[in-house]
Design a protein around this nucleic acid. Structure first.
Lengths: 211, 211
DNA sequence: GTCTATACAAAGATAGAC
DNA sequence: GTCTATCTTTGTATAGAC
């Protein structure tokens, strides 16, 4: 297995593996205690290395956060993933927006640690001096622009994607509220709870062919 | 102005006044930076006293938080306040639940610092070692029990208060999501946004006489 | 790339004077 | 009731050996 290359070297963990370990540990710990609630030593212990050893990878504590956001956050659960998924409503030529939201909720439900990280950081970043403040501040508009690039098929009565702003906003608000609740009461099923909101936000018969 | 009583004493700030100052400063600072995001010195500076001076009042850092929760949180915006408010739907003999939720949203909108405190603490307390973890964990059930004591009048089709569980839960979820959004985009009107959700959660014609 | 040792600052809390 | 001084711990970060 491509082992002969540089065979005089001892096998050891590659930087990529370390990076991955650091990311996973950070997701768990920050998701649980918040960025303000953890220390670099906590993460280092979790990964099994010294605190200066960790700093070698992330530079500073903020660097750890940047790494997390850039490499993990915006990399999954996108409309692009949805169109490639082949689930009902994901026809790349005529995708259904409610179907994407269901996809997104399922995606989040399948990665609870990442979801928790998101919820916790989002609230923590309300503080104007938080390293992610600007990121989350700009996010709603960025997400809207991002979504706007896809050819969603909508009921004619809506009158075009431009009129979806408040519905998109309310959908995000509902999701955030649900996620916060599920964090405290894990017995609540995230997907079921979202379906209840979907029924209200995208009602029959208006959305029957477009959900 | 009642100055003659104990006129031989110099006028100075009473403990009550100090308490009030400490509470106000804490609401602002913790709401903005989170409990993990502030130090006792931050609060002390804000109030204009030394850090040990502050500790004289609150005992420990956690004591500050307890003081906040006990004295401020659960003391306002209750159904009791609602019934005494005289607004439409607040007849103590036959109160309307959606009317109470509107009352609650208006109340929150009128005290943005307190609302922000609530949102930030709620997420921070996801951490199992957070001093308010248990408090927020138990809260949904407590709120439900608290609400259950009032004789809300509901559409007959609902079939009784017991069937309101999911609707109450979804209402709270929506509110939490809205509040989080408004914190980042203050131009959004909290009350207007809630009315949009109310229309979905308590639709016509079912709720027309009970809203 | 990973460690030990260490510098430096900040935070919570206590002692004791006034 | 409020302060100064101080103790102790913890946290970020750097220096330098291996």
């Amino acid at each position: 297995m491509a082992k002969d290359r540089a065979s005089h070297q001892r096998i050891r963990k590659t930087p990529e593996e370390r990076r991955r370990e650091i990311l996973d540990a950070s997701i768990r710990l920050i998701g649980e205690y918040g960025f303000n609630g953890i220390s670099l030593k906590d993460v280092a212990d979790e990964v099994g290395m010294s605190q200066p050893g960790l700093l070698h990878y992330v530079g500073t504590k903020e660097g750890l956060l940047s790494m997390l956001v850039t490499d993990v956050y915006d990399m999954s659960g996108t409309p692009g993933d949805f169109l490639a998924s082949g689930v009902p409503g994901s026809d790349p030529e005529a995708p259904h927006f409610p179907a994407y939201l269901r996809f997104l909720v399922r995606h989040n439900a399948s990665r609870p640690a990442l979801m928790q990280l998101y919820v916790v950081l989002q609230s923590e970043a309300v503080a104007p001096n938080h390293p992610l403040h600007d990121y989350f501040q700009a996010r709603p508009e960025q997400v809207w622009n991002f979504y706007s690039e896809y050819p969603w098929v909508l009921p004619e009565e809506i009158g075009g994607w431009e009129n979806m702003r408040s519905l998109v906003r309310m959908s995000i608000e509902a999701m955030d509220g649900i996620q916060l609740r599920v964090l405290r009461e894990p017995h609540i099923d995230l997907y079921e709870e979202w379906l209840a909101f979907e029924k209200l936000l995208f009602p029959s018969p208006l959305w029957d062919e477009y959900r």
